[in-house]
């Protein structure tokens, strides 16, 4: 079913270029995160799916294959390439991220309670990861993207209990999924970039422009 929709929207060569652009973008994002800001994160080869909006919750649930609860950070990005980024961590990962991102303990003893510290750290880490991936995609496709502030969409959510789609049920969504892994902390999570019909026409043109730039 998903393969069918994908075939209707993207021709095989378009699919190949899209996959290639995402491979390059996520590879560069990973390399620059390590080089520029000392965050060592491995991003898996992105998996691209085209789905109907109503199928999104079921798809997320199948892809995540987690039995426990999760925290979800949501951030909208706006440009010709526009949509929603969902960053999903298993519950408890915020404690590991805190040791990774607050090594110099700059926020300890600042009358901030632990819950707030963990939650806000999760959001700030999310902002950097999402920004790195989208920034690289936009750069490759010659677009300039702006962002809404990220927010914690769900805390300790049990995915199986959730059937509400974050997008309109009758819309098409392109889901770009990567599994990321912070090596030092043994933390894994998922990043889904969800973009919609409006971006598709532009995306196709941008993909070919990208290809032509290699002459």
């Amino acid at each position: 079913m998903t393969a069918e929709i994908l075939n209707n929207i993207f021709a095989q060569d378009e699919k190949d270029i899209l996959q290639e652009v995402m491979n390059i973008a996520f590879g560069q994002a990973s390399a620059e995160l390590a080089e520029v800001i000392d965050i060592f994160v491995i991003l898996s080869v992105p998996d691209i799916q085209v789905l109907q909006g109503s199928d999104l919750p079921g798809y997320l649930c199948r892809e995540l294959q987690t039995s426990g609860t999760v925290n979800i950070i949501e951030q909208n990005f706006l440009g010709k390439f526009a949509g929603q980024a969902l960053l999903i961590f298993p519950s408890g990962a915020e404690k590991d991220l805190l040791t990774l991102f607050n090594q110099d303990q700059e926020f300890i003893n600042n009358d901030i309670d632990m819950d707030t510290l963990e939650r806000e750290t999760l959001i700030e880490v999310g902002n950097i990861l999402i920004g790195a991936c989208i920034g690289k995609i936009a750069e490759l496709l010659a677009d300039v993207v702006t962002y809404d502030p990220p927010r914690l969409m769900a805390k300790d959510l049990c995915l199986e209990d959730c059937n509400k789609s974050p997008v309109a049920p009758d819309s098409f969504v392109i889901s770009i999924r990567t599994v990321f892994r912070f090596e030092e902390q043994n933390v894994e999570g998922y990043l889904f970039l969800i973009t919609n019909q409006k971006s598709i026409d532009w995306l196709k043109k941008a993909l070919f422009a990208f290809l032509e730039s290699f002459g």
């Binding site: 994002a29 620059e32 995160l33 520029v36 800001i37 926020f107 901030i112 707030t116 510290l117 806000e120 750290t121 959001i123 700030e124 902002n127 950097i128 999402i130 920004g131 790195a132 989208i134 920034g135 690289k136 936009a138 750069e139 300039v144 993207v145 702006t146 962002y147 502030p149 990220p150």
Partner: peptide, 16 residues
Amino acid sequence: RSVLAFGHFCFFSQKL
């Protein structure tokens, strides 16, 4: 550095 490298935005958490 991340803003300069990725061209994204950074929102400093007020609570933090």
